Computed example of a mutant assay.
Amino acid sequence: MKTLSLALTAVLATGLVACTDEASVENTDLDVATTDGEAAAKAREIQGGDLADLQLGAKIVGPQGEEVKARLTNEAGAFADITSYVACPKGVTECDPATAPNGMIYTYVHTVYPGEDNQDDSGSGTGADSSDVEIATSFMMTQPAYGFTGAVGYSTAEVIRAVGNKAQVVITCLDGGIVWTINAGGGGDQWEQAEPITFWWQSTVPPAGPADAYAIKANYVTATGNGPYPAKSDQAPSACTAPSTDG
């Protein structure tokens, strides 16, 4: 795993504003490590921001419309549905990478529904290939996060609804991609069937189209699937490949 350079810490504030109406979820143990293993992981983590604090503009409209829906699967079946979109910053009324100015920041947003999305006719929902997810432990990228600015996070309110106030979400880099690990903490609950959680990250590189680049670890196996993904760009700096400041 790569450690985020301290020089990139300030970038996390990009696209975020203070949120005064989320007081009910501020004083939680989301960032408290309760075991030695969790403490070691937190030493390598990237600080995450709350989805509720983002101010986004228009979404990119692709061949599937504003949202891309897919399943996260393996040879045993479907383990989650994923709904994704990519948005430009607040104030942008038409998010078109072809006409966007240099320096545009794109926010990739992914809502992951373990087991199902509660829609009878899509994804892993009732009437389709539904699985019974008793525990999901992480959402991740399986390819490098090209252009990753260091700004990343999740929906605090959704994590609390799914797992409880004692949950911990640790964000780290692995092989150039981003991993969101969700632990139950002292709450005793788990991220499981039909409990959606939204994750987000920002990049200087627009999506090139859906790619098989996302995964969930559920029921102790890994299932993968499609979502909007930036084009390969070795020239665009990524926070996941920034030099470590560890001694």
Rank of each mutant, 00 (worst) to 15 (best):
E134N: 15
V163E: 00
G127T: 05
D132M: 07
A157P: 00
S138M: 14
A128E: 07
S124N: 12
G164R: 13
T126F: 11
S130T: 15
D117F: 01
F139M: 09
F139G: 05
A151S: 14
S131Q: 10
G150N: 09
V163T: 04
N118V: 00
A162D: 08
F148H: 13
P114K: 12
A157L: 05
A151T: 14
G115C: 04
E158Q: 14
I160R: 14
S122T: 14
Y146E: 06
A157R: 10
G123N: 02
A157G: 04
T149H: 11
D117V: 03
T149P: 07
F139Q: 02
R161P: 01
T142W: 09
M140I: 02
Q119D: 00
G150D: 06
I160N: 06
D120Q: 12
G125C: 09
Q119H: 02
Y154Q: 08
Q143W: 04
A151P: 04
Y154H: 13
I160P: 01
P114S: 08
G123Q: 04
V163K: 05
G115P: 02
I135M: 09
Q143T: 09
A162V: 08
M141L: 13
T137V: 15
D132L: 08
S138I: 10
D132V: 11
A136M: 05
V152C: 10
V133I: 15
T156Y: 11
S124F: 00
D129H: 07
Y146D: 11
S131Y: 05
Q143S: 13
V152S: 05
F148R: 11
S131C: 06
A151R: 13
D132W: 01
Q143R: 15
A151N: 04
S130A: 14
G123S: 04
F148S: 04
A157V: 13
E134K: 15
E134S: 15
F139R: 04
I135V: 15
G150V: 00
P114R: 10
A162I: 09
V133M: 02
A145N: 07
T149Q: 06
G150F: 01
N118P: 00
V159K: 03
D120C: 08
A145Y: 08
A151V: 05
M141V: 06
P144H: 07
G125L: 06
Q143P: 04
Y146V: 10
A162Y: 11
S131P: 04
